[in-house]
Design a protein around this nucleic acid. Structure first.
Lengths: 140, 140
DNA sequence: ATACAAATTGCGACAAATTTGCAATTTAAG
DNA sequence: CTTAAATTGCAAATTTGTCGCAATTTGTAT
């Protein structure tokens, strides 16, 4: 797998979009800080770019498949899509609120595909969230 | 299975929460109108209760497992949890926007539980959304 | 390199969604 | 029926998301 940054540039080029400082900043923030709320993302970027640009950039990124939205808890979160990091699902702790990635499970993936096909559905992508208590919060 | 309304009262009691008119109203609205956006829910209730109370009630309901949030497209929707209606997952057609329920698949359910436990996580509930094209839209 | 056209950004305003404090009301329990 | 605690409505504040437009930056072709 090539460098994520390089891949971003190529993806932008493929869509005839400019490679700008703002886009790099948002991308890097997403790369470094896992799934984030938009508010968090804005906080990470606001030293160099405007709120409105963060909105515009993430909307753009989503439309070209660079980021995906997760509805986790009350607010949605954004993370890089499977093209930029390994496909995974999420464990959401209802007590402490943290969201962690779940290792990929081929058997699970297959069941999902099979279930969709059984209804004549052509699956393109999917999202799984398991809510419960993380190891730490079970102890407490 | 007993009457949903009765079950709600019991659930509230179990959590030492009052059984109030506002909570009954919100619950009934959810029971009658499938998965709804918060804006819709407010519209259904605003004749008798305040916007702020709808927010407070749904947040409470979510915390005690009476309602769950679904990601359908960009906005979330609320529906009664599996304790109040049959457990199911969602197929979301990206072309026509319809959302249909997926038949329960025990093998899939088991994989999900196993995956969570492998991380020391205590699963309470989960949610799956598969996005793609429904049978109709594939033809078109 | 330089110049130019097109794409992108920042900067307010704005509109919509969600949250909060607090006084008034309702509820559960005795 | 009384009373303390929980819940609600109301209004105001905050947070989130959009929009138009002038100023800047980018990609491309000299």
């Amino acid at each position: 797998m090539e460098e994520p940054q390089v891949k971003l540039v190529k993806t932008l080029a493929r869509h005839r979009l400019s490679n700008t400082a703002a886009r790099t900043t948002v991308f890097t923030a997403l790369l470094e800080h896992g799934p984030v709320t938009l508010a968090e993302l804005i906080r990470y970027c606001e030293a160099s770019i405007d709120r409105a640009s963060v909105y515009r950039t993430t909307a753009l990124f989503e439309s070209i498949g660079v980021v995906q939205r997760l509805q986790i808890g009350w607010k949605y979160r954004l993370e890089l899509s499977d093209d930029f990091q390994h496909h995974h699902h999420h464990l959401h702790c209802l007590s402490c609120g943290t969201v962690t990635a779940m290792p990929e499970d081929p058997a699970l993936e297959n069941r999902l595909k099979a279930a969709a096909k059984a209804k004549g559905f052509l699956p393109q992508d999917h999202q799984v969230e398991i809510r419960g208590l993380c190891a730490n919060c079970q102890a407490a």
